[in-house]
Design a protein around this nucleic acid. Sequence first.
DNA 1: TATTGTTATACTCTATAACTATA
DNA 2: TATAGTTATAGAGTATAACAATA
Lengths: 141, 141
Amino acid sequence: MATTTAQDAELAGALVQTMHVLQDLYAETSRPLGLTPQQAHLLCVLLAGPLGMTELSRILSIERSSLTSMVDRLERRDLVARIPNPTDRRAFQIELTDPGLALANDAHKAFTTRIDDLTADLSPTARRTLSTALTSIFSRA
Amino acid sequence: MATTTAQDAELAGALVQTMHVLQDLYAETSRPLGLTPQQAHLLCVLLAGPLGMTELSRILSIERSSLTSMVDRLERRDLVARIPNPTDRRAFQIELTDPGLALANDAHKAFTTRIDDLTADLSPTARRTLSTALTSIFSRA
DNA sequence: TATTGTTATACTCTATAACTATA
DNA sequence: TATAGTTATAGAGTATAACAATA
């Protein structure tokens, strides 16, 4: 127990609460756009470019079979498309359609705006400090 | 656009990434305990004391009807109990059973440990700064 | 009338296991 | 053999609408 201090508990608690508040905010923001939080996440990941099913499932931390049905639903709504991979006939690239791109941008902007509102009172220095700290802790290789 | 700077975007992005990483960690930690992340959240909320359905649904940000089925499942596993409210015959208090309390404590300890591991490299000062900043931004009235 | 909680219903998310097609 | 993705299945989470009982 020597390594667990009251300050550890405080920080862990603050992070868990941060997660829950942001989750709620993410859900509230996605919903009026007609998206579940998971769908919004998927579309926003694809903003960086098309991805194969396996890679996308890894990024979203879900099984490939779970992703299949998510992509099915989004494809039916013409938000994403399965593009055959010319070099591997087993594989697809999942990419945003034009409406999917527009919606992903809307979602991204909506989240960012809501979070900016929450953090509006911070000084530029505090903002930079926080951003740096979180990035160094939670960035993934 | 004058109010949105590159630093805003950086901070919002860092916070969204933080949320996703913590969500994954929360799920990974709950699973070996036989809990979904939502179930773990519910049990941990009850660590503070019994709550009525309406109050609990508000805290979890879900509809009361959604909560009914969650509580059904947890009650079947003897992790929570519906205690009649003596002063209002419509209402229940949802409370942890002994096994539910033990499991909630296990879950809480497991999250905290994982998060502490992630933040182990921070100095006490950085830890306190981060904790204070997050609490001030994300604490709810 | 308003509130507490439930039921009925429909979707979505998710995992596991077994499968097809291709590499 | 290994990998990419799907199908089948089952269970869990969630919302909406309508409801019963009580306040």
